[in-house]
Design a protein around this nucleic acid. Structure first.
Lengths: 115, 115
DNA sequence: CGGTATCCTCGGAGATACTG
DNA sequence: CAGTATCTCCGAGGATACCG
């Protein structure tokens, strides 16, 4: 069972953002509406099932909006909610912080000449 | 094997911050140096093994600093690196964003009178 | 006390196939 | 095309025990 005491926003939000896909999906939806199959192509290594589950999770969290159009073949589009769009720069900031801490994973470390 | 192409800072940083403990540990170290056993007490549900692993991960990521003092019984202290301290407000911002999106998980929703 | 190794379990996540 | 169900499997993570 879940810990009854935990009412920590960060702990809660990390349940949604943790894992490989959530932040990536948010990025791919950053400024584009995408179809389910688009997201699969954007991310060739995510499985059909996981993509559906992760999108559901983000939708329930109020980060992603799902819009389905009647017809055949089916057409479903995903984009960020206003809240989702507010999240982008916050995640970005963490990405920048990381980039600053670990520039290029050190591989081309001495590429920048001393003078 | 890992995806060779992926050089996305967010994807990388999420490998470190994903999961239940990393952000919590950062919080407990927010403005206090703690011993291993302190962190276990702060967080009764983390296992001995996982705490060690997560701390190692955060240490390798340059977020947490480990200081061990010779002697018996052993004494090891953990605190945030400068980079780790810079991270705190960024994670905080995401927590606030979430809190704003999902105030109190709705339980005491109508506690605030209309007028 | 702090860390690691070993064992074992349970559920996260892939593959596949079916439905609307 | 999008989504769900079923089966399966692997590894994240708990419990325990031992070492420095």
């Amino acid at each position: 069972m879940k810990d009854l005491v935990s009412r920590c926003p960060i702990e809660e939000v990390m349940q949604v953002l943790s894992g490989r896909w959530p932040t990536l999906l948010i990025y791919y939806l950053k400024d584009e509406t995408k179809r389910f199959s688009d997201l699969r192509r954007d991310n060739p290594t995510v499985s059909h099932r996981m993509l559906a589950l992760e999108l559901r999770k983000l939708e329930n969290a109020g980060i992603v909006r799902r819009t389905s159009y009647a017809g055949y073949p089916l057409r479903v589009e995903y984009d960020l909610t206003p809240a989702g769009r507010q999240l982008v720069p916050l995640v970005d900031a963490i990405g920048d912080w990381w980039e600053d801490l670990h520039p290029l994973s050190g591989e081309v470390a001495e590429a920048r000449p001393v003078a």
